[in-house]
């Protein structure tokens, strides 16, 4: 008595999930290529690798922040920062509250503004965790270099990036601010929903 579904199946597997993350991985590769270039140049010129690493990560943080501020500009890169927010917005949309900053046409603008404000705070917290993850990754790469260990592939760099993000995100998630904010975010969204003032 097997339960069956055709594949790909929207209720089971959405191939877009795979394609989205593949594009994000490619964007990650594009961002990391200059680091590799800089490293090999520095190596050839007997330069300061630590300084080169620092400069690259500063640029990386700036590029990601820019992408996150304007996801329309480079959505695949922005997703490196905002994977949680993306999922949240999809969830909110499924509950009838679309991810739009459109001005309200309804009368209950207060609830909508309150939701936007909490969502902004939520995004700030995610950004901080993502920045911390880049600092941690820079630190880990520096430690590896000091120990003479080599990162062998782009995938290894990506896995290190995931590991650093999970670590800083996990700390944020378990902290008191996130628990309270998570509750406020859902409550604020429900506030919009309940008052029937979500934009069409």
């Amino acid at each position: 008595m097997a339960e069956q579904t055709d594949s790909p199946d929207p209720s089971g597997f959405d191939i877009e999930l795979l394609l989205k993350q593949a594009r994000t991985y490619l964007a990650f590769g594009e961002q990391l290529q200059p680091l590799s270039e800089r490293f090999h140049e520095t190596l050839g010129q007997d330069g300061d690798w630590g300084e080169a690493l620092r400069q690259h990560f500063d640029q990386l943080k700036a590029a990601l922040a820019e992408a996150a501020d304007d996801p329309g500009g480079h959505a695949d890169l922005a997703r490196l920062w905002t994977v949680t927010l993306d999922t949240w917005r999809q969830t909110a949309a499924s509950l009838g509250v679309p991810a739009t900053l459109a001005p309200l046409a309804g009368v209950n603008a207060k609830a909508w503004q309150a939701y936007q404000s909490v969502q902004g705070q939520y995004l700030d917290l995610l950004r901080q965790a993502a920045r911390d993850a880049l600092d941690l990754m820079e630190q880990r790469l520096g430690e590896r270099a000091a120990a003479g260990a080599t990162v062998e592939s782009l995938r290894e760099l990506y896995n290190l990036w995931v590991e650093c993000n999970e670590e800083t995100y996990g700390r944020m998630l378990r902290g008191p601010d996130y628990g309270a904010l998570n509750g406020r975010l859902l409550n604020a969204l429900l506030g919009c929903h309940a008052r029937g003032d979500t934009p069409a």
Binding site: S36, H40, R144
Partner: peptide, 13 residues
């Protein structure tokens, strides 16, 4: 240290 060169990263992608 970063092992792969830019060319190797391109090939990996």
């Amino acid at each position: 240290m970063i092992g792969p060169t830019p060319a190797q990263i391109t090939e990996e992608l």
